[in-house]
Design a protein around this nucleic acid. Structure first.
Lengths: 335, 335
DNA sequence: CCTTGCAATGAAACCGGTTGTATAGAATGC
DNA sequence: GCATTCTATACAACCGGTTTCATTGCAAGG
């Protein structure tokens, strides 16, 4: 591959001039510029990014750590981040961490060793659990989705508590009183927040929350299926199931089907996220829309701001959610 | 951040010695090594990857071009590639190209400018459509999934034709004679190959292929839904629908439901890919299992071989597929 | 005792760009 | 017409490691 020297020699100028021909063409005379560009095209010259990056000590690359890229919800957020990256002319490295702390630490090391300029974390593990002391202050960091919005770094997500309450209110308004909950993993912040939202709504309606009809499950279809089996065989007279993700809900639908329930007549089921498959379920899933792509875009925009050095205040963006009403939740007021 | 000079000074050695302490510790005396390592830890020294990569002129990074990362099937392949990357100690950059030639060209440029060492293409666009002349000979390139297995570069995928024939034979064996086809995009190689497979099976069974009951659609749920609507309202007496992807099949199930079909009694539907959601459909989807993760792993293994400079013959791996029988296809022999 | 060989280490070149500073020539001002 | 300013370009340092080659010191061999 041709180098800057080769182009310089062919155009009869110095390497510095060739460099400027690309970075600041206005500085050159029309004549020289034309000669340099011609030489560059002739030799098919492409500047080595490696050399440029080394010189400038920035990679223009952002590392995204995703707990599971095969999860459709995360994949959509990553899509949004991608869009934002293109807009900010940044590159993207996606790392599937499998929620493993050691892999996340490797990611941090990539920033420390100049392989990436910043870090977007989609998991909920805060930076200070990964890094000792104050080292993290130097790392441009944005946390998306299930972040604690009181941390020292910017976060983007939704208001889990109120969004969850919104759905719970909907279920109550449809006449449901005994609402089983299939929550996500118990130790997760999201899970706790959404649970609080449900309790809020139930308390507001003057009802009592029955915590014996809560099951915890991994955020997956298989997890939802098993948890629903457990819950449905244990608790009687449930009229609705509040699932903390669409995948959990889809698993729950399968379980209910297999146990002989006629859906949605015998049992209403609600989800959370609004993944595309929800629309194609039988019955189509009533759920809470999370603006996944938008979350990604905003996360990237925040990162871009941090990298361009503007000393921004630490913001915690909460994007609006919406109730998506389809037919998996039925009105049982008439009964 | 501390540099090699700082460590050298603190340990009372030259930078060369520090460098060797990490790359080839056996070359140093026990005493010096210990001193250097101590100094490095004290100063929290991390060598700048940027400088190392620049020196070595390789990034240890592979670029993966995906037409749509939010597509679960692709996401699974990427997962497999990730696993392979970890194993080969390579980094991964994932680019969602949206099947756009210009974005793919940018990807190629990343290799040409030393930002990535090689390229894995998940789309079906061959390299020689993207690059003029013989330039592509220099680019380590592996094409996965829907590649033409006669090209000049390695490919990994399945035998689309025979896998498709396998499913078609299954439908025929279950008594189906009028089988509608919801194919993918017409101009795609995969689509054509899978269509050939269907024709093979139909011919082998001594039947005639009716190409008026074929509809083409994008490889998506929405595409499948619309195509199924068109086909079902146009063609009468179909007993089965051969869908070229699970997403298409899921869309078709929705369409058939909405048109009042009782599934699978009135109509059998088959998919292709074996994505996780297929198991949770109503009815659960009969499909062809593609080893998505495995395809990714093999693709990365081939790439790793190419990069370690072993002059391998150009291989075209065809991984085995399997029929996954669930209940969306019914036996109608008794009728 | 002198030569040879090897182990341990340092000096300096190098990777391929970018950029601050110097310089030559042209244009402008009085 | 000479001093001044500006424009276009070249020179050389620099980014932070790695690696080649040279050098030193010590052990082994003749």
């Amino acid at each position: 591959m041709a180098q800057i020297r080769d182009v310089a020699r062919r155009a009869g100028v110095s390497p510095a001039t060739v460099s400027r021909a690309f970075s600041d063409p206005a500085k050159l005379s029309k004549d020289t510029l034309a000669r340099v560009l011609a030489a560059a095209t002739d030799l098919k010259y492409k500047p080595s990014s490696l050399a440029q990056l080394f010189r400038e000590k920035r990679t223009n690359t952002v590392l995204v750590m995703v707990p599971d890229i095969a999860n459709v919800f995360f994949a959509r957020v990553v899509s949004g981040i991608e869009r934002g990256a293109v807009e900010s002319k940044l590159n993207l490295v996606v790392s599937d961490t499998g929620d493993d702390m050691d892999i996340e630490r490797v990611g941090i090391e990539m920033v420390q060793t100049y392989r990436a300029d910043g870090l977007i974390q989609l998991g909920e593990r805060p930076l200070n659990e990964l890094l000792p002391n104050e080292e993290h202050a130097q790392i441009p960091f944005v946390q998306a989705i299930s972040a604690d919005p009181r941390g020292a770094y910017p976060t983007v997500g939704i208001d889990d508590r109120s969004s969850s309450a919104m759905m719970a209110r909907h279920l109550i308004a449809q006449g449901h009183r005994r609402i089983g909950v299939i929550a996500g993993l118990q130790n997760r912040l999201v899970t706790q927040e959404r649970l609080k939202g449900i309790k809020d709504a139930i308390a507001d309606a003057g009802l009592d929350f029955d915590d014996t009809i809560v099951e915890y499950a991994p955020y997956s279809m298989g997890g939802g299926e098993q948890a629903a089996q457990r819950l449905l065989s244990r608790a009687r007279h449930l009229t609705a199931l509040f699932c903390m993700s669409d995948e959990i809900a889809i698993g729950a639908i399968r379980a209910a089907h297999d146990l002989g329930y006629d859906l949605p007549g015998d049992l209403s089921i609600s989800g959370f996220d609004n993944i595309e498959f929800g629309k194609y379920c039988t019955p189509p899933l009533t759920t809470v829309m999370q603006p996944a792509e938008k979350i990604g875009e905003v996360a990237m925009a925040l990162m871009s701001d941090m990298l361009t050095g503007q000393d921004m205040p630490v913001v915690h963006e909460m994007l609006p959610t919406e109730l998506v009403i389809r037919s998996s939740v039925q009105n049982i007021c008439g009964e």
